[in-house]
């Protein structure tokens, strides 16, 4: 092996031996079934808990968190929120967004599957089907901070955010009594005819037997 071959290998080994900061991973568990999901279908007025988790936190552990989650407030409504696993927690709401912050005053949070907050959504699309993305953005200030003052916020994309999941809401079926239109009257008549025909067939067959 000559020197020209060795240099790239050395560089590669150096690169491999340099500890790389692991990505922070965010997940949602809809409906508290113990599984992470990236999509959900809701009916009109149906509610679900969305538990938001972070993974990939190294020692000495996270002591604070803060993020903003955006959604289409014509599709979903937030009816409850909780971050009681943190010693301090604050929520602030704005149009189509929820700001969450929390801090631990004694322990830290290390590793994977760390519960950040829980948000209860309700589907509010009255008719048709509408979808919305749940997108996570870093909040203002230093939010994801380790006990040794290392700040992890730079590991979160602040421009386009992190797409946590897509939620579709199916509007409620028509419950009012509509006035039949001429076309539908025709269909109704055809249906009645078909029903009567079938009934007649059944009765005829019965007589033949």
């Amino acid at each position: 092996m000559n020197i020209n071959q060795m240099i790239p290998i050395t560089v590669l080994l150096f690169a491999l031996s340099t500890p790389a900061a692991a990505d922070l991973i965010f997940n949602i568990d809809f409906g508290r079934d113990g599984s992470y999901e990236d999509s959900l279908s809701l009916d009109f007025n149906e509610t679900t808990w969305a538990d938001i988790y972070i993974s990939g936190v190294e020692s000495p552990g996270l002591i604070s968190m803060g993020f903003k989650i955006t959604y289409d407030d014509s599709v979903l409504e937030i009816i409850n929120k909780d971050a009681s696993g943190w010693d301090f927690s604050k929520f602030s709401t704005a149009a189509s967004s929820l700001m969450v912050s929390g801090g631990m005053f004694s322990d830290t949070r290390i590793g994977n599957d760390i519960l950040l907050a829980s948000v209860q959504f309700k589907g509010i699309t009255a008719t048709g089907i509408a979808t919305t993305a749940l997108t996570l953005f870093d909040g203002s200030g230093d939010n994801f901070v380790l006990d040794n003052k290392v700040i992890l916020d730079s590991r979160i994309s602040t421009s386009s955010g992190i797409n946590l999941a897509g939620v579709s809401v199916t509007g409620a079926p028509i419950t009012g009594t509509g006035i039949p239109q001429p076309g539908s009257l025709l269909l109704l008549a055809a249906g009645l005819f078909g029903f009567l025909f079938a009934k007649n067939r059944i009765e005829t067959n019965a007589k033949e037997q």
Partner: peptide, 17 residues
């Protein structure tokens, strides 16, 4: 004094708590 009461301030508070 960075304009936020955030995680870095919490590190300081924890040290004294």
């Amino acid at each position: 004094k960075d304009g936020d009461v955030d995680g870095t301030d919490l590190v300081t508070f924890r040290a004294d708590y």
